[in-house]
């Protein structure tokens, strides 16, 4: 038995400690907004926050997440109102959308530590892959999210 905090809720789970956090989130807890893309930390589709820091949950053992606040796309904000989510809607960023939970989680973590990132910051910090090539719209949306968050 192991106890996990996900989106401000506590779950007591019967999983092996070496299970990747991704599969605990998706299969055991049933939050499927976090996606499986590669399983090798190559794409970022599985990005969640551990205490606000972005991690690739496909290569994070669940035992490493014990005692930390885990945030998934479902828990990023109440009613999907994080500035990144608003900006993503405004800019119609997603195409197929499969990578976008991970993109938004990566963007939200960047904005939390750097409220006004430059293009260079974005390129350095957001390495998530998008098959549909939405990178330009993502970049614009991050700038827009920074603007939204800065509004009083």
């Amino acid at each position: 038995m192991l106890s996990l905090r996900v989106n401000r809720k506590t779950y007591n789970l019967d999983v092996e400690p070496e299970t990747p956090l991704l599969w605990v989130i998706r299969d055991t807890i049933g939050l499927t907004g976090t996606k499986f893309g590669c399983g090798m930390a190559l794409c970022g589709a599985c990005t969640v926050h551990l205490n606000g820091k972005p991690v690739r949950s496909c290569v994070t053992r669940v035992s490493q997440a014990v005692g930390q606040e885990i945030t998934t796309i479902e828990g990023l904000s109440a009613n999907a109102q994080h500035p990144a989510q608003i900006a993503w809607r405004e800019g119609d960023v997603p195409e197929c959308g499969y990578c976008q939970s991970g993109q938004i989680m990566a963007a939200a973590a960047l904005l939390a530590k750097n409220p006004n990132p430059t293009d260079v910051d974005i390129q350095r910090e957001i390495t998530n892959l998008c098959r549909c090539g939405t990178y330009l719209r993502i970049r614009q949306a991050i700038h827009r999210a920074a603007e939204l968050a800065a509004k009083p």
């Binding site: 401000r8 205490n51 606040e69 904000s77 109440a78 109102q81 994080h82 608003i86 939200a108 614009q140």
Partner: peptide, 23 residues
């Protein structure tokens, strides 16, 4: 981006968490 006016309030929630936003 469209220029709609969104009312944005930022609230830090929980210890050391990513910023949570509520409206």
């Amino acid at each position: 981006m469209s220029r709609r006016d969104f009312v944005v309030t930022t609230l830090a929630v929980g210890g050391g968490l990513a910023l949570g936003f509520s409206f």
